[in-house]
Structure formats: structure tokens, C-alpha cells
């Protein structure tokens, strides 16, 4: 009787754990208001540690220069915009993940805001060019360059202090002025998309100076 109860108990506990895990996944599976454009092709990593790195750049100091390959083939260097445009850098953690997959399509429809503030946008992830090519094709035509910080892996993200311990980057925004000086740095909860208002407010502030 005792042995029967013990086996019964173990089996039932296992079943309850499975049931709750499945239930939890059902609750979290389609969060984030994800677009139908990606259908079931998005990998959900679950809730991640909000921030997992320490910034290595300071507002008011010169932003580290870099050269990275873009999805359209040519290489882009930060300093090529010096004296011409303010530069917004948008690091997103990884392709084919929930929040990232919607962030740049949002920037796609605000080209005028960037133009009016004499700014260009550079989107960067640590993914390879082929991955970025396939992923960004789902977003429609992007007006800004998408750069790959894949090799040496995450070198630029690391130089800015936004490379996480698992090799992906933070969800970060940087604004660099026409003199190449860092004017704004945003690194917050990787699980949340930054309100567009934050970025636009900072851009307008910089452009008004």
C-alpha cells in the first residue's frame, strides 16, 4: 500500500508539473503583440535578465568608431557620417525573437522624423548576414542600413558595453552627434521595446541645439 502510494504520488506530481509548464507556455507564447507577418517563425526565449552588461561608453565622450558589413553588401563606417549627420544606433538582441522583430518595422515608418532631425539610423545585431537578410525581408523595405556584428562576434557591441554574457546584445539606443560625440545612451530592460517618444524627444533636443 505504501509502495503503491509512493509511485502514485511521483507520477501525479510529474503530471501536474507538466500540466503547469504547458499552461505557462500557453499563457506566454504569443505575448508582445507580435505581427502576423512572422507567423510561427519566432523563437521565444522567455523572460530574460533585464540588463546583463556594463556600458563602456560615456555621454559627452567620443563614440568608438567601427566598420561593419551591411545586409545590402557594402561596409558602413560610423565616422563616414562625421560632419554630415547625427547617427542613431539601434542594437537589438537577436533576429527571429519577439520584441526585436517588431522594433525596426516601427522605425520603418518614421523616416521623416529622422530626416527632420538631420539623423540617420544604423540597425545592428550580432547575427550573420544571411540570417539578417532572411529576417529583415519579412519587415518590408527598410530605409536604413542593417549591420552585422557577427564576426569577430559582438566586437562592436562589446566596445560599447552592450554585449551580454550569452553572446547576444542588449536592446540599446545611442545617439551620436555630427562631431562624433555620444549624446544619448539608452540601455534598459531587454524584454521591452523602448517607447518611440524617448528617441524622438532626444533627437529633437539635439537638433534644437
Amino acid at each position: 500500500m505504501y509502495k503503491f502510494s509512493e509511485t502514485f504520488l511521483k507520477r501525479e506530481i510529474a503530471l501536474i508539473i507538466i500540466f503547469w509548464v504547458v499552461g505557462f507556455l500557453m499563457m506566454t507564447g504569443s505575448a508582445f503583440g507580435l505581427s502576423e507577418v512572422y507567423k510561427d517563425n519566432i523563437y521565444d526565449p522567455g523572460k530574460l535578465k533585464p540588463v546583463d552588461s556594463t556600458l563602456k561608453v560615456k555621454v559627452g565622450e567620443k563614440a568608438p568608431d567601427f566598420t561593419l558589413p551591411s545586409v545590402v553588401g557594402k561596409k558602413i563606417t560610423l565616422s563616414q557620417f562625421k560632419g554630415q549627420k547625427n547617427v542613431v544606433i539601434s542594437f537589438v538582441p537577436a533576429a527571429w525573437t519577439p520584441v526585436c522583430s517588431d522594433q525596426w518595422p516601427g522605425y520603418k515608418i518614421v523616416e521623416d522624423i529622422f530626416k527632420n532631425n538631420d539623423a540617420i539610423l544604423l540597425g545592428i545585431t550580432v547575427d550573420s548576414i544571411p540570417t539578417l537578410f532572411a529576417w529583415t525581408r519579412q519587415m518590408g523595405k527598410l530605409w536604413f542600413p542593417v549591420l552585422s556584428d557577427f564576426w569577430p562576434h559582438g566586437q562592436v557591441a562589446d566596445r560599447y558595453g552592450v554585449l551580454r554574457s550569452d553572446g547576444i546584445s542588449e536592446r540599446a539606443l545611442f545617439i551620436i552627434d555630427k562631431q562624433g560625440v555620444l549624446r544619448y545612451a539608452y540601455v534598459d530592460d531587454i524584454n521591452k521595446r523602448p517607447d518611440l517618444k524617448l528617441l524622438v524627444t532626444e533627437l529633437r533636443k539635439l537638433n534644437a541645439q
Partner: peptide, 10 residues
């Protein structure tokens, strides 16, 4: 909808 959703934009 969402402002960030490509299908919603389309």
C-alpha cells in the same frame, strides 16, 4: 493592431 506590425502597416 500595432504601429510596429508590418502587416498592420500594409
Amino acid at each position: 493592431f500595432s504601429m510596429y506590425c508590418p502587416h498592420c502597416q500594409k
